[in-house]
Every structure is written in structure tokens, then in C-alpha cells.
Amino acid sequence: MVKVPVAVRVNGRLYEREVEPRLLLVHFLRDLDGLTGTKVGCDTSQCGSCTVLLDGMTVKSCTCLAVQADGAAITTIEGLAAENGALHPLQEAFWNQHGLQCGFCTPGMIFAAHEILRTSPDPSDEEIRHGLEGNLCRCTGYQNIVRSVRAAADAMQEGEG
């Protein structure tokens, strides 16, 4: 099958590749440059562990073709911290509030939280839970994840104020 050229900016760096049209974005990202923080979980767009940002908005990268991301800017968990290594407030909050145990769902969970705060900077607990509906965690029982999102929202609003 004829390969297709794609140019995708991942965590600020431009990658140009020839890909099979059927290549999923998640495999493109994981095989690109050691960026294995993005996980393949259910592979059916239910669990959310493959969630990344595409032009600033969440996408489940197991349900997106690499060719669909041609020309886009992608952020994976490896690119969320500042260049000087300072963690994003969401990463700090998940750490401080014990929002993870095994960590497999965490990259996707953090981007789902990022989407919640992008659309609603001061969300209610109900909004947080509705916003996390597409992400499954089998360890924490979600309580600490909701707490983490709450704490990150507070920290980010304080940062702005």
C-alpha cells in the first residue's frame, strides 16, 4: 500500500515520516522517539490511557490515524512539563494527592484533567467526574484523582491570580 507523508510536531519538535495510512496515532507516537508514556490500554476508545493533546484538545490516539494528525501539534505526557523540568500543576497535583498507584492510566488521566480545566477552570466535583468518564483507572477508585484535579484547578487559578 502506498505510504503517505506526514509532518507532525510532537512536544515542540517536528517529525516528518512516511506512514501506512492505517497507522494509528498512538503507534506513530510510541515508535517515534522513545515516547512510550502514551499507553495502549483497551484499544477501543473506552479506557482513555492513549489520550494526548492534538492542537490543544484531547484525542484518544488509538482512534485517530497518524495521517489525520498531519500538520498538527501533539503534546504527550513527556512534553507536558516545562522545558526546565518544572512539573505541570496537574503532574504536581497527581503526585501530592496520590492520584495514581500503578501509573498506567495516569498520562491519559492527566490529559483528561487538562481538558476539564481547559473548558472549565473552576469545575465542580460533578463536572470533574463527568469529564473523567472516558478514562478508566483500576487502582485508585477515582477519589484521589478527583482530588488531584481539584487541587490542580486551585493551584492554576492561584497562579493566575
Partner: peptide
């Protein structure tokens, strides 16, 4: 529908 990431696409 689905979840926020699904609704984005």
C-alpha cells in the same frame, strides 16, 4: 456522547 475526547473528534 462518549466522553470529552470522543466529543472533540
Amino acid at each position: 456522547i462518549g466522553d470529552p475526547a470522543v466529543r472533540n473528534r
